[in-house]
Design a binder for these strands. Structure first.
Lengths: 148, 148
DNA sequence: ATAATTGCAAAACATTTGCGGGCAT
DNA sequence: ATGCCCGCAAATGTTTTGCAATTAT
């Protein structure tokens, strides 16, 4: 597993607590959930520091930013590609172990223990127009920050 | 297809323009994208009216609220369940026609004409804890609005 | 020493809500 | 006439950013 001291990032205590806490969880917390936990160990830490670090750690490949349902982004200490289950009632998010993938019809999934109601599938790629732009070397820029 | 006059909603001109515009698009606009278009026909309409109507129309089943990648919610005039492709460069979202589902490996999808880079799969259901709550009749409430 | 990083405050964004007046029924 | 709905403005919730002080290198 990639470690903090193998990156260009400085090893601050805040950073270390953030990454340790995140890696110790299997629930893929939002930034503010993580903030509440981290604050128990470092009471003076700020929410911006948490956000900033999550961004940087994801940029270095030490953690993964998730873009799932819901209004808040979630973060994952496991950088391997895998899928997730989200609870429709409490919002908790867990991993789908690869062994469970065959077991995901309606009803209770034996391996992940969720009652599966449905799923959401979104493909990602380049539309016809952008394919050309990308081939011509124009960079992938997601969309200007506001006001067109 | 379900129509406006079959719902308890009043048939205001704003509402009609919103639903017509949305149904005429295949790109699943965000609220503000739709607002810009609708404003050409009704220059005095407000963004809140667009949001409020999208919410109500989705509640009545005339349109569909989408919860895809990205920071903004998108809306779909087609209420049938289906999947989507999102362009990683411009953010455009299109339908995946069901005939295309077999054609979605890496490379250019013949039917939808996107270059497919990957996909995102999220299962939805009830976690072990909430399963019990739901069985006891406790309602599905997503999470209190803020401040615990 | 120097440059990255922090905490705080404020800005930026996306969405929702309160209200008084207007319009569909 | 009733009350749903509109536009406007303000509030809310999430994430980002500017800045001066602090800290890892």
């Amino acid at each position: 597993m990639l470690e903090l001291d193998e990156t260009p990032l400085r090893m601050t205590s805040q950073r270390k607590v953030i990454i340790d806490e995140l890696r110790g969880l299997r629930t893929h917390p939002t930034a503010d959930e993580l903030f509440l936990r981290v604050r128990k160990k470092r009471p003076r830490i700020s929410l911006s520091t948490v956000y900033r670090n999550l961004e940087q750690l994801a940029g270095c490949g030490l953690i993964q930013k998730l873009d799932l349902c819901g209004s808040q982004r979630r973060y994952d200490g496991d950088t391997a590609a895998h899928h997730h289950v989200r609870c429709l009632r409490c919002g908790r998010v867990d991993d789908i172990p690869s062994e469970a993938m065959g077991d995901l019809r309606k009803g209770v999934c034996k391996t992940c223990d969720y009652e599966i109601i449905g799923y959401r599938l979104e493909y990602l790629g380049f539309c016809p127009r952008c394919r050309k732009q990308v081939r011509r070397g124009k960079p992938v820029k997601p969309k200007p920050r506001k006001k067109g």
